[in-house]
Structure formats: structure tokens, C-alpha cells
Design a protein around this nucleic acid. Structure first.
Lengths: 126, 126
DNA sequence: ATTATTGTATTAAGTAATTAGTACAATAAT
DNA sequence: ATTATTGTACTAATTACTTAATACAATAAT
């Protein structure tokens, strides 16, 4: 999996989001051990401290569990992961609709636009 | 108009986005003079340097025009503004659909979700 | 003509994010 | 028992962002 960062936001925040994506989409298995800080850091090509900062945040959210000096594990609370997933979706929908509305597109309008622009986006992605 | 900044991104970037929103939605009139750097800075409660940095960026994008020491003006190129507006919408749609897809919602699914969640969001906003 | 305004530039300082390098205790692996 | 791995903590240095405080030339306003 590729790690890509933009420079318009702190890297550790982008790491948190990337890991949350992975957590709720089954990239990592609930209850299973998580890659070590150093491994993740070298994969993402950031300093271990930066990765550690992100992991600490995820742990304080209850997503990562750590039993002392053993490897961290992803929470086995699948409901928590499911809720996070819903929250992530809702948050994005809310922000998206808000910005589209400010650009002059109401919800109906936005939905139409999404359908219309579908093919164009597909082309661009290819 | 209220200026609000989050601390997860550089302020000058948030200023650029806010001003772009204003430019494409008729908050400022094309061809007309733009508020002075110092005024904008005090309105947004940031340092003039920070505002200046944002304005310089907008000028390099061709959105702001400056005739030497006179006030800057918003471009009178309405087509440019219209294109920017479309680009802003497309960019947001693309990113939104991409993230929703990663969360497991395809376009059709996402559209349904937007319609379903409509009322909930309205409630929250009230 | 004089004054105020405007864009622009400069230097210094402060803060936050990131990197670099190291260290240590606890567990796992051998 | 010894070694490797892991989480964690720490200090220092660097870079980017932001603020602070000026300064100056060109135009507008008076």
C-alpha cells in the first residue's frame, strides 16, 4: 500500500487518517497485531517519532491496544470500527455537501452533477 | 463574513481557499478593487504577512491583478472565475467519491446515502 | 504640496512539525 | 541465558509557518 502525503497538512494527521482508512476497511484484521512503529515509519518514509505520534493518537481513540512492550494490536471491537466507518462517511458527506452548497449547488443539484460527471472522472482516472 | 481557521492546516492555505470561494460566488465583484492587505489581515485576525502570502498566491494564479501601488482588483475575466468554480466543484467531487469508494460506497451507493442522510444533516445544522 | 493609503520588502523572533540520534525496559525468539 | 524486537522516552537540530515591527516607493485624497 502506498503512502502519499501532501504538504498542506501535518504528516502525522495524514498518517492518522490513512491508518483509520485501513482499519475500517479490513486492511488490518481486528484483534491482530499491528506492524511495529519502526516498520510503519520506514514504509511511510517518515521519522519513527512522527509515526509514534500518530499511533499514540490512535491508541487514545481506543483503536489501538498495547500490552506493555509487546506489539500493538488493532482493537477487536468490530462495532467500534463500524461506527468509525460511519462517522468517517458522515463527516465527509457533511463537509462535501456544505462546500458544494457554498459553490451554488444544492443537494439535488449536487447529486445530478455526480451522476453527470461520472464518466468524465472515470476517463481521468484511467 | 466570518473568518474561521482550523489548526490542522496552514492558515495561509485556508485563506486562499476562503478567498477563492468568495471570488467565484460573487462576494467580490469581478474587475473591482479588492480590500487592502491590512484590512483583510485585521478582519481575519492574522498577520499582514500571512495575508500577503495568500494574496501573492492568488495573484500568481491570475485571480488578482495589481497595478503597482494601487489597490488590487479581482480579475474581470468572468470566464476564468467560472472555470475556477467548476474546477473547485470537480476537485471536491473527485476527492469525495474517491474517499467514499475507499470506505466501501460506490457512486450509486453514495448517492443513495446522500439522499437518505439529508434530513439528519438538516437537523444537525438547525 | 502635503498627507494618507497601498503594495511590497526586510529582518528578527516565536511556535509547531519533523527529523536525527540515542537510550532503556519488557517481552519474544533463539 | 542471550539476542532481537518492541514500545516508549528523551534531547537536539531543522524546517515551515506565523507573528512582530519596520521601511519605502507609488498612487490617491486632501
Amino acid at each position: 500500500m502506498e503512502w502519499e502525503f501532501t504538504n498542506d497538512r501535518p504528516v502525522y494527521i495524514q498518517i492518522i487518517e490513512e491508518l483509520q482508512f485501513r482499519m475500517v476497511t479490513g486492511f488490518y484484521t481486528p484483534g491482530e497485531s499491528f506492524p511495529p512503529v519502526r516498520t510503519l515509519a520506514s514504509e511511510a518514509q517518515v521519522n519513527p517519532n512522527t509515526m509514534q505520534r500518530a499511533l499514540a493518537e490512535l491508541e487514545s481513540q481506543g483503536l489501538l491496544c498495547t500490552q506493555r512492550t509487546n506489539a500493538k494490536t488493532l482493537t477487536e471491537d468490530r462495532e467500534m470500527l463500524e461506527n468509525l466507518k460511519k462517522e468517517m462517511a458522515k463527516k465527509r458527506i457533511r463537509s462535501f455537501l456544505g462546500e458544494m452548497e457554498r459553490l451554488g449547488f444544492d443537494r439535488t443539484n449536487t447529486i445530478q452533477l455526480i451522476s453527470q460527471i461520472k464518466e468524465t472522472i472515470d476517463k481521468e482516472v484511467r
